[in-house]
Structure formats: C-alpha cells, structure tokens
Design a protein around this nucleic acid. Structure first.
Lengths: 328, 328
DNA sequence: ACCAGTCTGGACAACGTTGTCAAGTAGCGC
DNA sequence: GCGCTACTTGACAACGTTGTCCAGACTGGT
C-alpha cells in the first residue's frame, strides 16, 4: 500500500480510501491510484485490516467429520449463510475427540473468528466461558453444550425415535432391537430414551439384550444385530440410532433369509432405491445448519436476549422396510 | 498482553517469551506470568501474530460443493494433512461458478493463506498469477488449471472411462450411451474422449444421439436416457460420466421392464446394495486430497522444482450392473 | 576486588491497515 | 477582497504481536 501511494504520488490514507471505496476522493486521483494498484498487483492485506478493525468476517465451524454425509450438508448450509453475510468459513473436524475439539475451538478463537458453530464432541464447554465473555458468539448445533448456557439448535431426537419405534409397533412388532451410539452423546441418549418410551407406552417389555449402545463400528453392530436376531425370541425389527448403524443393518439384513423390519434415524441418499426401501426418521441437516448460522449472525448483529434452544421436528418417511410385518 | 505484563510486573517481551515457550525466562518469572495469563484469561491474538510473522498457518480449499459426496472426503483429507502441519483450513464452495471461484480465491489470498488447494470451476486462472508470484503455493486437484502452470493432481479420467466402456463392450454391448457433464469441464471432456476411444477401438459406430453432455440435472438426464433407450436401435447399456448421473440412471433403469447395463464413473456409498449392484470406475477422492495437500506442503517447505502433474489411476469395480448382457 | 561470561529482562521498531483530525484548496455570495 | 462552506488530502497514532538489541544482574575464577 505504501508502494502504491508512492507510485501514485498520494498519501497512504488516500489509497486506503480508494481500496475501500470510501467517498471523498476526486475522480482524477482515484484513477491514478487504481492505475498504480493494478500496475503493482496490490491486494489489501486482510490480516492487518483485521488487526485494526477487530472483526475478522470469518466464523468457525467445528463438527465431528466433514465427510460424514449427515454433516456435509450442514457445513454447506452454514457456509451459504456466512457467504450471504460476507464471512468466510474456517472449519475443522473434531473426530469425536473432546481434546481435539477444544484444541480446534481455541485455535479458532485465537484467530479471532467472530463466531463459532459447534457440534460438540465433549460434554464440558466451560473452557469456552472466557471466549464467550470476550464476545465470541457461539451456537451449538445437533447436540447441546455441557455446563454452559448458549444458543443451541437441535433436532427432536426423543420424539423422532419414539415415533419411529411406535411405527414399528403399529405394524405388529413386539420384539424390537435398538442399536445406537454411545449414550454419552446427547442425541444417542435421547434416541434410546425415545425407544424405551415407545416400548413402555405400548406396554412392551424390553429384554436386556435388545439394546446395544456402544459404538457404530460395523463389526460390533453386525455382531450385536446377529445376537439379537438369534434364538426363538429374536427381535423381528430394528430401530437404528443413526445413519451409519442403519447402513450396516441394511447389509446384515440383506443376508438373511427372512424379512426383518428396519427404521433408521437420519435419512440418506438412495435409501429409496434399496430393497426394501428404507423407512427413516428424517432430520434436515441443512436446515439445522441454516438455523444455527442464522442465530449466530443475529447475535453478531447485536441481539443479546437470553440463549435459546430451538428444536426442529423430525419427519417419518415410510418407504417399506418399516412396514414389513413380523416374520412368524 | 500489555495487561498481563503489567499485572505480572514484567516487560511485554517477557510475556511473549512465556507464551511462545521461548528460552531465557527464569522459572520464577514464568510462574508469575502464567498466573497472570490465566487470571486475565489472556489468549494470544493470532491476527497480530500473523501480521508480524507473515505466515498464517492456514490454507484455503476451494471446491465445487462441500456437501458433494465426492468432494467431502477430499476436503476431509486435505484437512487432516493441514492439521498434521499445524495449519487450519478455510474452505468455500464455488458452486461451479467461475466468478464465485475467483471471488473466493482472492478473498483467501487477501487473508494471506499460505497455500491454496483448488478444484477449478473456471477455465482461466491467470488472475492467480500475481498471487503465485507473491508466494502463495497453489495446487489444483481433480481438474487442471487454465492458462497457467501449477501443480496438479488428477485422476485418469480418460483411461478410466475407456476401460469402463471397454468392459461393457466385452460383455457384448454394441449400442452404448454416454451421459456426462458439460465438456467444458476437463474431467467430463476426458471421460467423453475415453468413451469415444473405446468405441473406436472396438470399431463400433457411435450414433449422434448416444452422447449427451450437457447438465447433470436429473430431469435432463432422465429425458436423455429415455430418448436413447427408445426405438428398435435403442442403447443396451450406459456409461455415466459421474456419480450424480449414475444415481439418476439407476432410478431411470429401475423403472424399466428390461435389464439395461450400467457402468458409472465414481464410486458411491451403497452402490453394492442396489439391485443390481452398480459397477463403477472408482477413484479415491481422499487420496486425491492427500496427494494435493502433500504437494502443497512440500512447496511451503521450500521445494521449488517445476510444477508437476500427478495422475492417479482409476479402478474398475465389477458388481453386476456392468456385466448384464444386452437385452435382445 | 575485579573481570569475563552467562543469564534474564525490557525498550523499541516494525508488520499493513484504518480512524481521527487538521490543513489545504476551491467555489460562492456579499 | 473577505469570510464562509464544502470538499479533498495527508500526517499520525493505534491495533497486538515479535525480532533486535542492549542493559543490568549474577556467576565463578583469578
């Protein structure tokens, strides 16, 4: 910028004015400055600008895995909202590791992002208190924060799972297995609660072995499913706690010689083309992302009402696999 | 930092030393400084640090759509490599719009990212010349840059498509349709070339109507496919130019009363569970991302040999849909 | 007691930008 | 010609950090 000013024979501030399109520069001067800018290939250094202005026009997004088909649309939606507000998106995957989440979040804060959208991997976010106090707007999405108050955007996991299981019960199933993620994860816990609530509402007993909530590792899921299916009292239907479990179960069930009903939490591409087409409890990840980012920018624009929790309903999409009757 | 120094009763530079773990601070002083840091909730301002040091420890990734199942793993792979080098990832989606690509790239350059990984949407990257001259390492992935020399990491679209079509021919097909993306996109063009090369190698004529290369819009693809299938000389097999086309074709073919063979470029989740399972020419997007990011950091570490093009082979995965014989 | 060498700590400038403020110039009505 | 306003312009400080350089205190050997 100094060079541009020197070449155009004007002051530093005048160049700054031209670069930022501020008023109060004569057309003649402006032309000279523009000429110098292109001649020297000058591009404003936003690091310095950020330092001076205190706003970075960038927001951070921390989620579990950028490549997960559930989170990718969420990420894209946040990006679109950010773009509409002239902000860039810095994102990182926590890989479901609390330490890595914290490391990422603090790195983003050190970069002075204006705001954060977080899909929590950890259960304790008190480490964020000083940052929030320092003015970093923060919105949690998909799962609530731990031990702090903050905006949060969630899907109604409990009701979704309850309705999904009730759907199976309505189609005649009495012995239904639940396979989900670690109950330490809020959504996983809620879905398991939903499963239990539906069973209880129908006055159905829940056998100990019918609930598996550990990992989503395909091998483990497969083993759990096969265990639940075995014996004369094996389950006749499954409720899957998330899309990864659902996909694994589809594979397991495809190898059986009898039909077993399946309802999965989370919709996924091609679910309608499988045989049978998979019935799911769908949430809209892009919608979650849009809402969260919207909330974030509302804060950045000055809204300071108390933190709110927004819950999005889920939608049951019956496609076939959830309507299979129990095999005798 | 000033406050921390005041509270600990030391100089500014001493705090800086403690924060950066530099040597030359007595344990006693260090303790006092640490205490002040936590008491005041101080966090280093990386904007200022960046301004001073000239390195941002962040890289930019611009691709077509973060949420596309093909690009999401690529993005994740780049992130992992960046993380291993202590860098953050800023990314944006170009939505296949050259203007938006340029806008994003220049915004990233203004932020002084150390390097760029780009999946080009535009065919002309001369706008990057001043940036590259200024030292921004740049690697193009999936598609080559336009009108400039730079590192590039590509999959072998031509050979992949040629082999995929040859596979169909080997299974007895003579009338094969090709549906792909705009030939303005390098990969799309290469795949179309591969299709034509395979047909020519087998001395098979290519009817005008058998090649549709416009959009990947499902409605258009459906219409094109139905046109190619109609009449006594309709095609008996399709080669799909990318995963979106493949998925649309799966839907179209599922509605037919006769089997039509299909080989698609790009693998996708659940391809093996469809009926029939879909034969694909697979490339590994994560591998592309890893290689590109690796190349980028090699440059950042000082390598300055001439730009290189790395081509990754594709792999044909026969699953069933590509081995169907021609319907009579 | 003195010197050389080592260790610790701080003053200061610089990174590239923008906000503040004041100075300079031109135009205008009287 | 005078005083006024309106407009254009530039000098300077500041944002928060780090690199350079120097000063002072301490150590141990003579």
């Amino acid at each position: 910028m100094k060079d541009v000013a020197a070449r155009a024979g004007v002051g530093l501030k005048t160049v700054s004015r031209v670069v930022n399109g501020e008023a109060g520069v004569s057309p003649d001067t402006e032309r000279r400055v523009q000429e110098s800018i292109t001649a020297l290939g000058f591009r404003r250094n936003d690091s310095a600008r950020i330092l001076r202005k205190g706003r970075t026009a960038s927001i951070g997004l921390v989620l579990e895995d950028l490549a997960d088909p559930f989170y990718a649309p969420l990420s894209r939606a946040v990006e679109e909202v950010a773009r509409a507000h002239g902000a860039l998106l810095i994102n990182g995957s926590s890989a479901e590791d609390p330490a890595r989440e914290q490391e990422l979040v603090l790195a983003l804060c050190a970069r002075r992002v204006d705001g954060l959208v977080i899909v929590p991997a950890s259960g304790d976010h008190r480490y964020l208190e000083p940052e929030i106090a320092a003015g970093v707007a923060t919105v949690f999405v998909d799962r609530p924060p731990g031990h702090i108050e903050a905006d949060q955007v969630l899907a109604d996991s409990f009701a979704g799972a309850r309705d999904g299981v009730a759907h199976l019960i309505a189609h005649g199933h009495r012995r239904i297995g639940f396979i989900g993620d670690r109950p330490g994860i809020h959504t996983a816990h809620e879905r398991q609660r939903g499963y239990l609530a539906a069973m209880e509402a129908a006055q159905l007993p829940v056998h100990d072995g019918w609930v598996a909530a550990g990992t989503t590792d395909p091998e483990r899921v497969r083993a759990d499913a096969e265990r639940m299916l075995s014996g004369p009292d094996g389950v006749t239907a499954f409720f899957a706690g998330n899309n990864r479990v659902t996909v694994t179960l589809v594979r397991v069930l495809a190898e059986l010689d009898r039909p077993v009903a399946l309802v999965g939490f989370d919709d996924f591409e091609l679910a309608d083309l499988l045989v049978p087409p998979v019935t799911v409890v769908a949430q809209d990840p892009a919608q979650l992302g849009r809402t969260a980012a919207g909330l974030l920018f509302r804060r950045l624009e000055g809204a300071n009402d108390p933190p709110r929790r927004m819950t999005h309903p889920t939608r049951l999409i019956a496609r076939g696999s959830g309507e299979l009757p129990p095999a005798t």
